[in-house]
């Protein structure tokens, strides 16, 4: 009886030690799930989801505090990917967080800009250059189209312009066969 208890206790201690060692040895820094969710999110950092950026939203999704359909720039495709990753059901984009728009860039009307630097402070990806009382301009290549620079501008000189299709961005369309109605035969 005592021997049996000792054997079991010894086994428990050994296994516990092994588990403890493994937990320390194979420790994973950070939350891999958050990283995976963050990789799916479009990184516009627009805050339309109600969080202060893509990473906080990813953390909230991972914790189960946020729905997966709160990201308008990611669109339906992003929601599908999140649903696949998390094993949740697909939900269409929640209307209160916005609608999916074509990808755009901010354009500053350089005639109207007064050089107040408010948009520079608002830009989450430092895509606006300029200095106090100097004209500002947007680095189009870095602009994520988050629209965060629009509200602070005191003279409303920033507008969003959808990105036009160019030779570099043109895509072959999904093949669709045009079905013509069959000619009617005389009865």
């Amino acid at each position: 009886m005592l021997a049996a208890i000792l054997v079991m206790a010894l086994g428990a201690v050994l296994l516990g030690a092994a588990l403890g060692y493994a937990a320390a040895r194979f420790r994973v820094e950070g939350d891999p799930l958050v990283e995976k969710i963050d990789a799916i999110l479009p990184q516009t950092q627009c805050g339309q989801c109600g969080f202060a950026g893509c990473k906080p939203y990813a953390r909230a999704i991972a914790k189960g505090e946020a729905e997966i359909n709160q990201c308008p720039p990611g669109g339906d495709e992003g929601i599908h990917k999140l649903a696949d990753l998390l094993g949740r059901d697909f939900k269409s984009l929640s209307a209160e967080h916005g609608i999916e728009k074509p990808k755009s860039v901010a354009i500053i009307d350089e005639q109207a800009c007064i050089g107040c630097t408010l948009c520079i402070q608002a830009c989450p990806v430092d895509a606006i250059v300029g200095a106090a009382k100097q004209m500002h301009t947007v680095i189009a290549r870095q602009c994520t189209g988050c629209e965060l620079c629009l509200p602070p501008c005191p003279v409303n000189c920033i507008s969003m312009q959808p990105i036009a299709e160019s030779a570099e961005t043109w895509k072959w369309k999904y093949p669709a066969y045009r079905i013509n109605p069959a000619p009617r035969e005389a009865a």
Binding site: Q43, C54, V125
Partner: peptide, 21 residues
């Protein structure tokens, strides 16, 4: 290809955002 470019752009945006923070 379009997704590749999009992903590259997202990675750049993430880096820039994290650097800003």
């Amino acid at each position: 290809w379009a997704r590749e470019t999009q992903k590259e752009a997202a990675d750049v945006a993430r880096e820039r955002y994290e650097f800003r923070l």
